[in-house]
């Protein structure tokens, strides 16, 4: 089995937002819409303070609330563990958008349909796809790969950095963060 996952190394992220631009280009999104958004987190206390950019996108949850609430079955998880939207079935009710705790879904107002990060699978031609955000990241803060393959770069990086989902125990997310 293949279970695609991603690791985001927020301590390496410089906040250049290149991943968002690459994603928008890859997915032909207008400038106002994006599958990747950022939360700035502050930590520490004066005078030792830190600010980190936390890029957020679809976490490809194994226990995905968007899939269970979708009334038309448009939201689904494919056999590689990627959460997808079947655009032909989406009525744009936005129930999935309210159910997503990561606020990772957007509505395309050109079609009314709801969309989100797809790990760039749709241009997969049999080879392992490399999502545009991973491909473009200047500092190498993103790693993409197969969680079920213990020798994959992403699996090893998760172990060596003790990376964790953004919110422990929320939805069994498959994007791991090093913070």
């Amino acid at each position: 089995m293949t279970r695609y996952a991603m690791l985001i190394h927020t301590t390496r992220c410089v906040g250049c937002f290149a991943c968002r631009v690459a994603c928008q280009t890859q997915n032909s999104l207008p400038a106002s819409d994006s599958f990747i958004r950022y939360e700035e987190q502050e930590s520490g206390s004066y005078p030792v303070v830190y600010a980190e950019q936390v890029p957020l996108q679809c976490q490809h949850c194994e226990d995905a609330p968007c899939v269970s609430v979708c009334p038309t079955g448009a939201s689904y998880i494919n056999n590689e563990g990627i959460v997808l939207v079947n655009q032909e079935r989406c009525i744009g009710c936005k129930y999935c958008m309210t159910a997503c705790p990561y606020n990772a879904r957007i509505q395309d107002h050109r079609t009314g349909e709801v969309e989100k990060c797809r790990f760039c699978v749709w241009h997969d031609d049999g080879s392992v796809p490399e999502p545009a955000c991973v491909d473009t990241c200047v500092t190498g803060a993103r790693i993409f790969g197969d969680l079920d393959d213990p020798t994959s770069e992403v699996s090893q990086a998760i172990v060596s950095h003790n990376a964790k989902p953004i919110a422990a125990g929320l939805t069994r997310a498959k994007i791991y963060y090093v913070r």
Partner: peptide
């Protein structure tokens, strides 16, 4: 439900 409003047959899903 914008997308359904534009494609009413989808409401059957």
């Amino acid at each position: 439900a914008e997308a359904g409003f534009k494609n009413p047959l989808r409401f059957f899903y």
